[in-house]
């Protein structure tokens, strides 16, 4: 019984962990390359799920098409935010860009989530991707949707890793992430790349939103918790790390969260996750530096 339970929890942790990985990679890419504290990541997440759900259930649009529309909407929102909100705001707030962008994103998320509630109420909606079937492998159960989530998450993370390393665009993004000033000198245009990065990041958040909607349900506040996890995973993995590293951080958090269920009941799992995180961080080697470096994440991208 014990072994079966461990295996079951590990599988559940791997599924959640893959989802966290996907979330963290998108958020981390935006934070690492563009230096935006993009709290409205929650909003693109929700928007994709809503557009998909509304098109699918109300207008009977073919699910893949509806999903595509949802993802496009998320990408459009992300790009628009960078182009017309974050970008100009960052320019005018200088060294404080990271913090002011965060407030702006916070406000936009509050407004957006309530706008969605106004339009579609908080009544739960659903997303149908395909017939969900449970599987039972040696007493461990999961569904084909769970498998799909794991597969899709790691496929996207893998693709992103490959793209960053082996395509011109990816290398440009990495170059900008490494040193935007230098990148400008060698002829790259960071501003345009930023929009591309926002499109990619928003796409990933949209995929996560749709998967989450299919697995659970679509409600206006569904992005609240994921965005915190996205943030934690992105920072834990390192904002300049490869997507794979960030993904593994997400997997780690998912496993810790789930396996804590062996010893404590679920209302304590958050405590376990964050205590492990706390201990892990406390054991990090010392590195002294002030707000300057933290801010420089945003500031170095100006100019």
């Amino acid at each position: 019984m014990q072994f079966e339970q461990i295996a079951q929890l590990a599988v559940a942790g791997a599924i959640n962990g893959s989802f966290y990985a996907l979330l963290g990679v998108g958020f981390g890419l935006i934070l690492g390359v563009v230096g935006r504290f993009h709290y409205a990541y929650a909003l693109t997440f929700v928007l994709a799920a809503y557009i998909m759900s509304v098109l699918e259930s109300s207008l009977s649009v073919w699910p893949p098409l509806a999903a595509g529309a949802g993802l496009l909407a998320a990408m459009a929102l992300g790009v628009a935010l960078e182009r017309w909100v974050y970008g100009p705001l960052a320019l005018s707030s200088g060294a404080l860009a990271l913090l002011t962008v965060f407030i702006s994103a916070l406000g936009i998320t509050i407004a957006g989530v309530n706008l969605i509630t106004l339009m579609w109420t908080a009544f739960s909606r659903s997303i149908y991707l395909f017939e969900v079937r449970p599987f039972d492998v040696a007493g461990v159960t999961f569904t084909n949707l769970d498998l799909f989530i794991v597969f899709a998450s790691w496929l996207l993370i893998g693709l992103l890793t490959v793209a960053l390393n082996f395509t011109d665009l990816g290398r440009s993004i990495k170059a900008v992430r490494g040193n935007p000033f230098l990148a400008r000198i060698i002829g790259l245009k960071p501003d345009r790349l930023y929009l591309v990065v926002f499109a990619i990041g928003s796409f990933l958040s949209g995929v996560a939103g749709i998967l989450n909607g299919a697995r659970f349900a679509v409600v206006p506040n569904m992005g609240d918790r994921p965005v915190v996890f996205a943030f934690v995973v992105a920072f834990l993995g390192g904002t300049r790390s490869s997507p794979l590293t960030v993904g593994l951080a997400g997997l780690f958090i998912g496993l810790v969260e789930s396996l804590s269920g062996l010893w404590v009941s679920p209302q304590w799992s958050a405590l376990v996750v964050f205590s492990v995180l706390f201990i892990y961080l406390s054991l990090q080697p010392t590195e002294i530096s002030g707000l300057r470096r933290w801010l420089s994440l945003g500031a170095r991208l100006r100019g």
């Binding site: 559940a12 959640n16 789930s258 269920g261 009941s265």
Partner: peptide, 9 residues
């Protein structure tokens, strides 16, 4: 998932 795993056990 955690609660259900416990119930399963």
């Amino acid at each position: 998932s955690a609660t259900i795993a416990r119930l399963k056990a």
